[in-house]
Nucleic acid binder design. Structure first.
Lengths: 140, 140
DNA sequence: CCGTATCCGAGGTGATACTG
DNA sequence: CAGTATCACCTCGGATACGG
């Protein structure tokens, strides 16, 4: 919009709002499945803790990326949903996915390549092995 | 123990390869300016330390995102350049920038220092205010 | 000039236990 | 079910000092 040389601001803003390893993946879930409950997100993101999920979600809500709707029922039910702003992340996520899929296996020795199918989507959430990247586990 | 397990979905892969707040910004510099020397990058990213820059750069090199070319001169000269793979990140960065620009300033209190320089001019993207948001940056 | 080595703080994350 | 609180760990990042 303004000068062509200002990617700095937009990029930095994205990085600020979606900091942390889990943030983007949570958004991916909501983009892919639509409104989701707390437990659903938790199950869809193997390895994430309630602590982290809560923290990220609250941050998103605070920044206007998602809405939180609590139903006073028994048992309680809370639904998180992307706002239009959060929906706007679809293009970014899509670009990421496209790039990531195109990445040749730079590290030859592994590649648990099982994501062959879901190119059209953001990937099947359930099989995201990102849990293995959790801080506690040595990843590289 | 393998160094890295490659996430099956592209999004996770991106997040794995470009982890940390500075990673994406370094790529942005290289995307924008092309091949750059160590010191140039350092200057272009106010607040980054040699330690971090080296670490990120080595990671990029290891994953095939950038190439490192050292000239045995005096004084020594080292040039980093994006590989085609790294170039492919342009779309992602662009998507981020586009989104970030469209984000309304929902958090004035958190972004305070962000606009100090304001839309003024990041003419060359040199002054990326992200340094003030970095983990260790004490500016706030 | 281009890093590397070491120390240190900050914050994300997980595990566990507990509340509404 | 949907969190919250606390603790501890890990990694990233900055600062400084040193080496190629």
């Amino acid at each position: 919009m303004n000068k062509k040389n200002t990617p700095c601001c937009g990029v930095a803003r994205f990085l600020t709002l979606l900091d942390g390893p889990w943030a983007t993946l949570i958004v991916r879930e909501l983009l892919h499945f639509g409104p989701r409950r707390f437990t659903q997100l938790r199950q869809a993101l193997p390895g994430i803790s309630a602590h982290t999920l809560t923290h990220r979600l609250k941050g998103f809500e605070r920044h206007g990326l998602v809405t939180r709707t609590a139903y006073a029922e028994t048992p309680p039910r809370v639904v998180y949903e992307l706002t239009p702003l959060g929906e706007g992340l679809r293009d970014v996520l899509e670009a990421m996915r496209k790039w990531g899929d195109a990445v040749p296996d730079a590290d030859p020795e592994e590649m648990t390549n099982l994501h062959t199918a879901d190119a059209a989507d953001f990937g099947t959430s359930a099989e995201c092995p990102y849990s293995q990247l959790s801080k506690g586990a040595p990843k590289r």
